[in-house]
């Protein structure tokens, strides 16, 4: 418990130290990082220097200068290109499933494994199996009887 406390303290100490950077640049990178490059696979607008992405980057910079915030700018692009332009699907409607399934797997998975496999193990009698421990025990007993006969 003490260790955990020290750790939290340490984290707080380091967290405060995180350098403050140019806020405008961070905003721009945040926004451009959440828009997909329309002409490449897997890259954000920020990472790509395709012509289309450069245009989008310019628009983002312009809108930031106009004083628009992140949500407004993202909304503008969704209005223009549809939710396809976002790198993560908006959390609504059917898309909610894409977020819920992983969470359900992580939460319900262990329960499923617990009840299905750990609690319910195949019955050895059905398979006419003798466990290793039982065999060992049997041999030990026989050994003892042999030894006692000898003695």
């Amino acid at each position: 418990m003490k260790i955990l406390y020290i750790f939290i303290l340490m984290m707080g100490f380091f967290g405060v130290q995180a350098v403050a950077q140019d806020n405008n640049k961070i905003d721009f990178e945040n926004i451009a990082g959440e828009l997909r490059c329309p002409t490449c696979t897997g890259l954000s607008v920020l990472d790509s220097d395709a012509e289309f992405s450069n245009k989008i980057k310019d628009i983002v910079k312009e809108k930031l200068k106009e004083g628009k915030n992140k949500d407004q700018i993202l909304e503008f692009f969704v209005g223009r290109y549809g939710p396809w332009i976002l790198r993560e699907p908006p959390k609504e409607g059917l898309n909610l499933l894409a977020w819920l399934i992983p969470l359900l797997v992580i939460i319900l998975g262990p329960l499923f494994v617990w009840f299905r496999f750990w609690k319910h193990q195949p019955n050895k009698v059905d398979y006419q199996l003798v466990s290793r421990e039982e065999i060992l025990e049997k041999f030990h007993k026989e050994l003892k009887t042999i030894q006692s006969k000898k003695g």
């Binding site: 959440e34 897997g42 396809w84 993560e88 898309n95 894409a98």
Partner: peptide, 14 residues
């Protein structure tokens, strides 16, 4: 999602 709703969405790195 596109097959069901007809709307295109993207899932990438984030």
């Amino acid at each position: 999602s596109e097959a069901i709703t007809g709307q295109k969405i993207t899932i990438q790195a984030p």
